[in-house]
Design a protein around this nucleic acid. Structure first.
Lengths: 187, 187
DNA sequence: AGCACTGATGTCAGGGACTGTCATCGCGTA
DNA sequence: TACGCGATGACAGTCCCTGACATCAGTGCT
C-alpha cells in the first residue's frame, strides 16, 4: 500500500475544520474541502457519509470509553455512581482544551452541525442505557440515569470550554453531578 | 384574502405526513408533497424552511405552554416541582394518542427526522432554562433541571405511545419524574 | 516476466434539495 | 380605472449526494 498520500480521512477532517473556520460552514463546499486535501469530491463521500460527518469522527472512541467504564464498574455501585465513572473515563479521550474550543465554536455556528452533535449524544445515551441494563439496572432507571448523565456531561463540558475556566474536565463533571443531585433532591 | 385555497400550511403538513407514511421519507420528494397539496415546490419552501420542518409545526405551541406554566408556578415551588408543572402543562397541547403514534413512527424511521426532533427538544430545554432563571434559579441549576425535565418527558412520552399502554400522559410523566428522583438519590 | 486480482481513487452523468429572480393574478383602495 | 400588495407560479442555477464505469499501483500466482 502507499500509492497515494496516507491518512486520507485525517487530511479531509483537518481541511474541513480549517475551511469551516475560515469562511464558515455554508460558504464552504465539499469540493473545496476535497481539493484542499488533494482529493476529489467523490472521494470525500467515500470516507464520510455527508458534509457534516467529517467533524464527528471521534464519536466512536467516546462511546467505547464510556460503555467500557460502565461495564467495568464494581457490581455494588449505584447507577448514578456508575455514570460518574463513565463521565470521568470520557474525559480521558478528549482533545486538549484549545482544540475542543475551536471545534465547539464551529459546531455552534450552524444549526445543521448542532443537530448532528445532538444525535451523536443521543446515540451515546442509548449505548450507555444498554450498558446499564447489561448490569441489571431496570429499563426506565437505566434510561433516566443515562439521560441525566448526558445532562451532567453537557453542563460540565460547556463549563470546561468557557473562556475564563481553569479547572480540569473531571473536576467540573463531578461538580455538575453533585449539582444535579442537589436539584433533583429539591422536591 | 382568499384568492387561493385556505390553510396552505396545514394542507402541506397533512400531505407530507400521508406521503411519508405511504412511501417513506426518502422516497418522497418535496415536489410530490406540494402537488398533493395543490401547490408547487417553490411555494412549499415559502412555508417551510426545508423538507423536514413540515413535521414540526407544533413546537412553538409546546414551548409557549411549557414556559408559561413555569413562569406561573408559585414562587415557593422548588425547581424540580416547577418542572413537573411544566410537564403536565405540555400534556394538554398534545394531539390524541393515535396521531402521536403515527407521527412518532415517521420521525423514528429516518435519522434526519430524529435530528430535527432532538434540536427541537434542545431548543425547548433552552427556553425552559431561561424561564427558570427568570424565576431566580441559579444558572447551572436551571440548566440541569431543564435537561432532567427533558429526560423525564422523553421517557414518559415514549411510555405513553407504547403499544399496550393505557394510562394517560400526565400520570406517566409524574411517574417518570419520581423514578428520576429515585435514581439520582441512589448515590 | 507475465498475468489476473484487489482496492483506492478519478471521471462522468444525474436526481433532488434549496434559492434568487421575475412574472402573474386576484383583491383592496385611492 | 389605476395602482399597489401579497401569495403564488415559472425558471434557472448551485450544491449535496449517488451510481456506474475507468484507471492504476501494488500483490500474489504461474
Amino acid at each position: 500500500m502507499g500509492r497515494w498520500e496516507p491518512n486520507t480521512r485525517e487530511r479531509l477532517a483537518r481541511a474541513a475544520l480549517e475551511l469551516f473556520g475560515e469562511r464558515g460552514y455554508e460558504q464552504t463546499t465539499v469540493a473545496e474541502i476535497a481539493r484542499r486535501a488533494g482529493l476529489t469530491e467523490r472521494t470525500y463521500f467515500r470516507h464520510y457519509a455527508d458534509k457534516r460527518e467529517v467533524l464527528f469522527g471521534g464519536a466512536e472512541a467516546l462511546r467505547e470509553a464510556f460503555t467500557r467504564a460502565v461495564a467495568e464498574a464494581p457490581a455494588s455501585a449505584a447507577p448514578i455512581d456508575v455514570m460518574a465513572a463513565g463521565l470521568v473515563a470520557i474525559a480521558a479521550v478528549f482533545p486538549e482544551r484549545g482544540t475542543a474550543r475551536q471545534r465547539h465554536s464551529v459546531v455552534g455556528s450552524h444549526p445543521e452541525l448542532l443537530e448532528r452533535e445532538l444525535i451523536k449524544r443521543a446515540t451515546l445515551a442509548a449505548a450507555v442505557t444498554e450498558a446499564l441494563r447489561a448490569r441489571g439496572v431496570p429499563d426506565h432507571a437505566a434510561a433516566l440515569a443515562a439521560e441525566a448523565g448526558m445532562a451532567v456531561f453537557k453542563v460540565g463540558y460547556e463549563r470546561w470550554i468557557a473562556p475564563a475556566e481553569q479547572r480540569e474536565l473531571p473536576d467540573l463533571l463531578r461538580e455538575s453531578l453533585s449539582e444535579l443531585k442537589a436539584v433533583t433532591a429539591g422536591g
